[in-house]
């Protein structure tokens, strides 16, 4: 067991602004190790920006991010990232195995090419997500769910301790969604910390054990059964959450 004060991710006073408009305002967030956490909030709440700020992809106006008590730049190798599926051009001339292998680039360092061992890791990851039959498939010929699983496999070969995923369920069918969530739960069982930007409020309690409610500010964060309350949801979504009442 890890000491209770160890934090996988520790965000303090984080503010991010695009031009004058704040996208994230004074965010404090502690993520304990070994949880499966959903970041939930309305459109424009800053969910993606929060992930990107943790990864150092956007420069915050103020605040600090620590991964296991060290800045992200020192901890890159223990963090895996799944960007939004729509953030890349899927007509890029490459195949499934090659994309998954990109997950090894960080460990490989400059100039060195991926070798046999990297290929084996990639194949193993593809088996995990059930895509082993598609290794040589051109990526433009994948369905949305398959694209998502390729991105997941790429993160798996990063062999990380913390995973940050931006809407991994976006545009996937029910079967794929179930396959993905059992994979994420397996990661958690192995002691990994998994942070997921999530949109579907109905499934939060089933899928996750920890939740962060976000709308520019952090509304609440903690275990799902304590935090995922109708009061907190109303505060996050304003009046637009009436349909949740009957839950």
């Amino acid at each position: 067991m890890q000491a209770p004060d160890v934090k996988a991710i520790e965000v303090t006073d984080l503010t991010v602004a695009y031009r004058e408009t704040p996208v994230l305002w004074d965010i404090d967030l502690d993520v304990p190790p070994g949880v499966l956490l959903a970041i939930v909030g309305p459109n424009g709440a800053g969910k993606t920006t929060l992930i990107k700020a943790i990864l150092g992809l956007v420069r915050p106006a103020a605040g600090n991010v620590l991964i296991y008590n060290k800045p992200y730049a020192l901890q890159r190798k223990i963090v895996g990232y799944v960007p939004q599926r729509g953030s890349v051009d899927w007509d890029f001339p490459t195949n499934v195995l090659d994309v998954v292998m990109m997950g090894r680039y960080g460990a490989l360092g400059w100039i060195r090419r991926p070798g046999k061992q990297d290929r084996e890791m990639a194949m193993h990851a593809l088996e995990k997500v059930g895509m082993e039959k598609y290794t040589t498939r051109q990526i433009s010929q994948l369905s949305g769910g398959q694209q998502q699983r390729v991105f997941l496999a790429r993160a798996l070969v990063q062999d990380a301790t913390i995973y940050l995923m931006d809407e991994p369920f976006q545009g996937v069918d029910a079967t794929t969604e179930r396959a993905i969530i059992s994979l994420l739960q397996e990661l958690r069982e192995n002691g990994k910390t998994v942070v997921v930007v999530h949109h579907d409020l109905q499934t939060v309690t089933d899928y996750f054990d920890w939740v962060t409610l976000l709308n520019i500010r952090r509304i609440a964060s903690g275990p799902v059964d304590e935090t995922f309350t109708s009061d907190n949801l109303r505060e996050t979504y304003g009046g637009r959450i009436a349909f949740m009442k009957n839950r």
């Binding site: 990864l55 890159r76 963090v79 953030s87």
Partner: peptide, 9 residues
């Protein structure tokens, strides 16, 4: 192919 991922690693 994926500038965001490139920056993250």
């Amino acid at each position: 192919f994926d500038e965001g991922f490139a920056a993250s690693i």
